[in-house]
Write a protein that binds this DNA or RNA. Structure first.
Lengths: 332, 332
DNA sequence: TTGTATGCGTTATCAG
DNA sequence: CTGATAACGCATACAA
């Protein structure tokens, strides 16, 4: 804070009233004679008084902040979610405290606890910590909610979208194009979204697909690096866990002279802005990011209000976007 | 905060000591007998005591937070800067409060002031507000610094990189490739980096280049939309204000069937991760983002320590990265 | 080394 | 409608 801050007492003294009155005026709602209120406001204005949120926080027990924990800030996917949350939060005078776990799921409980210290409520975006940790966190810190993870049987409110169905749909598309051997470029296995996506791919075996599981990751570089192994599996289509991974894969494929989609099909997931600008544009699934964030904030509101959140809400749905990165099985 | 929080008094009572002792133990440094300290720690641990940062903040006058204001969170460029700041900050127990102005430079002073309310110091990333506002801000809020803007004559510490030289170098490259008519796809004119880049392009006229100024923006979409006008100018090379803009332009060019670099050359600026994955990969300038963030934090440290920051520091330099998006002037 | 007491800037409860 | 004054949880100067 600045060196010599103007405090409520300064305003009170200058206006010739008690600090209680100033406090009332600043809060707007309570009963103060119009004339007095005006005078106080004028003085406050002139002195450049701004209520100290720290002091207010101590007095009210509320910080006016919501904490948000994301796995990585690099992924554009989270920006829109964060943006949507912030849009709602700002409208009600809340600020967001953003923390990034950089994929280290072991650090998540600590980071979340730290957010708790500063914020009234915490939103966990795609948390990867085990159920147990999540449960422990929820017990002593009730104002918690999850985005994009189903904390089943833990009693934490959540908002999430369905990854399974669109991924199954993608598999169906590839199947109808004649593909059999496909490779799933997997993200981290502690990511709920990833396991859901892999579940869909592996279950597509029931429809004749032969999926290979290739460990990769959620980033451009991991996608790039996973391509060689994926090709060794004999796959004619690569199903990336997300768009970043697909973009990396695309780059490696180009380096190797493999044409997409003529020689090989490729899909992503998320539909980040860049996905439609790649060459060729990516077939992917459009995740309702804005809706996710908007609902998250609404949910947080009711959590903050102490309302019992319904723990049984439907999953949002993601829409498959077909672009030019997939094509028929090339003749052998 | 949680409903029933464990306070310092709880620990004191349980351990049979005064709160002062507990306070001392929690801070680690001050003199407390080893035995007592151990007992207090044990009790604190058992009770799950975590010092309330709000109360501590009120007592010490420090919040343990640094505020960071960025124009837009969407631009990957800022992530690394933020990340580097956070890396340093975290090491010293500071948290970052991130706010986004979404390009509305008029809102920046308010947002910055709001950050001030919650944080010990504020870092303005590429602020676009006019010098006057910046000056006003600096007067009553001394713990301020700018990243990527030269607050000349305002007395605000800063760390920035040189956009002018690499841009001039890019112009030189294009000139040697035979290009004459070039179009600068401009970002916002209140962005210091943008005006520096345009300054370089326009001064390249001295070397025979004929630059057209095309208003665009810093985003993929604005780059996309600006292409048509740029082509009407008769340019054989497009110089985008940043990579996002270039990526958008590339997409539009592809839609129009204009081949890069055979028919037209294109450059970006920043060298975000995507820049090397486009088709063709972008010629651009690699900005020392990490260094920018790291230095920013170091600077903030000295600002927080009340040390007089030197206001005359050299600009960091950005390196031109030549990739396949530029080529010789096509024969007419 | 330890405890007591005061203050940090607000809010909120109670009297007037 | 307004003014004292007690919290809020912690740090710290001062005493012991």
């Amino acid at each position: 804070m600045a060196g010599t801050r103007v405090t409520i007492s300064d305003v009170a003294r200058e206006a010739g009233v008690s600090i209680a009155t100033v406090s009332r005026v600043m809060q707007g709602r309570v009963s103060v004679s119009a004339e007095l209120a005006e005078r106080v406001r004028a003085v406050a204005q002139r002195l450049g008084y701004r209520p100290n949120p720290v002091a207010r926080g101590l007095a009210t027990g509320e910080t006016g902040m919501v904490g948000v924990l994301v796995p990585e800030l690099d992924n554009p996917h989270y920006h829109e979610v964060i943006k949507a949350i912030a849009a709602g939060a700002e409208l009600q005078g809340y600020r967001m405290l953003i923390l990034e776990s950089e994929g280290r799921s072991a650090d998540e409980p600590d980071l979340a606890a730290s957010l708790y210290d500063h914020a009234d409520g915490v939103i966990l975006c795609s948390p990867r910590m085990p159920d147990d940790s999540l449960r422990r966190l929820a017990v002593d810190r009730p104002r918690l909610l999850c985005v994009n993870r189903l904390p089943t049987g833990i009693g934490i409110p959540f908002v999430a979208f369905d990854s399974y169905s669109p991924m199954l749909e993608i598999c169906g598309l590839l199947g109808r194009l004649g593909h059999r051997r496909v490779a799933y470029l997997s993200g981290p296995m502690d990511s709920w979204a990833n396991t859901e996506r892999w579940r869909a791919v592996s279950q597509a075996a029931a429809f004749g697909l032969e999926p290979a599981f290739i460990p990769a990751g959620y980033t451009i570089d991991t996608g790039y690096d996973a391509v060689d192994e994926a090709l060794r599996s004999g796959a004619t289509a690569l199903i990336a866990a997300n768009d970043l991974c697909a973009i990396g894969a695309l780059s490696r494929l180009r380096d190797r002279g493999v044409r997409v989609p003529q020689d090989l099909s490729l899909t992503g997931f998320d539909d980040i802005a860049f996905a439609r600008r790649t060459v060729p544009p990516l077939t992917t699934a459009r995740v309702p990011r804005h809706e996710l964030g908007a609902q998250a904030w609404r949910l947080m509101q009711s959590v903050l209000a102490g309302e019992p959140a319904l723990l049984d809400r439907p999953l949002l749905s993601a829409e498959v976007i077909v672009r030019e990165s997939i094509g028929p099985l090339p003749p052998t």
